[in-house]
Write a protein that binds this DNA or RNA. Sequence first.
DNA 1: GCCAAACCTTGACAGTGTCAAGATTCGGCT
DNA 2: AGCCGAATCTTGACACTGTCAAGGTTTGGC
Lengths: 211, 211
Amino acid sequence: MNEHKYHHGDLKNALIGAGVDILAEEGLGGLSLRKVAARAGVSHAAPYAHFADKQDLIAAISTEGYHRLYERIEALVQRYQGDPPRQLIEVACAYVEFARKDPAHFRITFSGVIETEKNYPTFVEISQKNLQLVTQVVEACQSAGILKPGPADATAVSIWSSVHGLASLLIEGQISHTLLDRMSRRELTVFLLNQVTLVELRPEMFPAKAI
Amino acid sequence: MNEHKYHHGDLKNALIGAGVDILAEEGLGGLSLRKVAARAGVSHAAPYAHFADKQDLIAAISTEGYHRLYERIEALVQRYQGDPPRQLIEVACAYVEFARKDPAHFRITFSGVIETEKNYPTFVEISQKNLQLVTQVVEACQSAGILKPGPADATAVSIWSSVHGLASLLIEGQISHTLLDRMSRRELTVFLLNQVTLVELRPEMFPAKAI
DNA sequence: GCCAAACCTTGACAGTGTCAAGATTCGGCT
DNA sequence: AGCCGAATCTTGACACTGTCAAGGTTTGGC
């Protein structure tokens, strides 16, 4: 309805959305401010009314990625309440799946496109919320005896590192095909968790629809 | 001596070296073909005699990064021959340390700046050599009983993922300061390995000069 | 109904990757 | 020795990029 309005109304979010789309279609290399502006239907310098520079837009897109991830993970933690090993596995698989479905968005969220100098409070906030959630699951797993006792924050970081590393190496094509032919991504993820933890494998952890 | 020669002599390697330097000084954002050319003392289009495009130069720089990593890791595997858990820990720490010392080079090596379409044989080669080395260490650890038995390739990928993830999250500043104030990077790395494996901690694994 | 602020456009600039055309030098052949 | 093709490098140009300044348009509050 707002086709020919001078004022867009919600340009900021439209730009973030356009950025996410371009990222999905063309990857990081295709992401330019001018293309984002064009896709949102505004002139090439319009983004500067909402973002200080490209870095700022990228930070917003990263934050959006983190939010999407958090939503999925939070839903899974809820669904498997009371079954800590299952929570751990499903959260890990969701993480890997997020990376696979939209590698560019995953990369831009985690691959330090955000320079350390500037600090983006909303990004830090959602990042901490994510880690808190993982820490919760880790604590539940420790109570359930499937994770060695120890400081929960360091353990959470260890688990997160493992899953993050697997997701990264997978989307960078660093995992050999001979291995990938033998094991699905889900099997690999569960294998890794089984290596890291003392999870006992149960059949329902391998649904027919493997990722 | 070759200051004013029209033909540089070894421009290809000079360009790679210049790229590595710029990466260390200015990070990924500062890496442009023209700056690399200028630093090597040639005109802006000279790189095109040796590289098809920017992607090609980046691939060469990535390959160089992988080579440097391999050299260090190989030396450590040699030095601690016969002590598999120590091998594992030192290799992991070297990996993390490589990322810390030159984050931009680490990122460009592993963070998918190489598009999957093109394949760079030398890059794939050194990447496989690296994994083989890790697999060796993993097999030794399995024999020593500090790693669960299982397919060595999948186990190696698990270990590699864990360490790679930790290194990535560290250089992206995703590890909270409250944790980093309590544990050094080396302690974190060993903690992670201890989580992942059944390594027994020994005092010599924590030298005074922690990373 | 007016005015300041928010929002957007236009135009410009330096820097970028890339290519075409040409200059320079090297290596091998006679 | 001298020539010639190939390798190497330079120059010039093009489209595209991030960014800023100046100005136009709209909105919301008084």
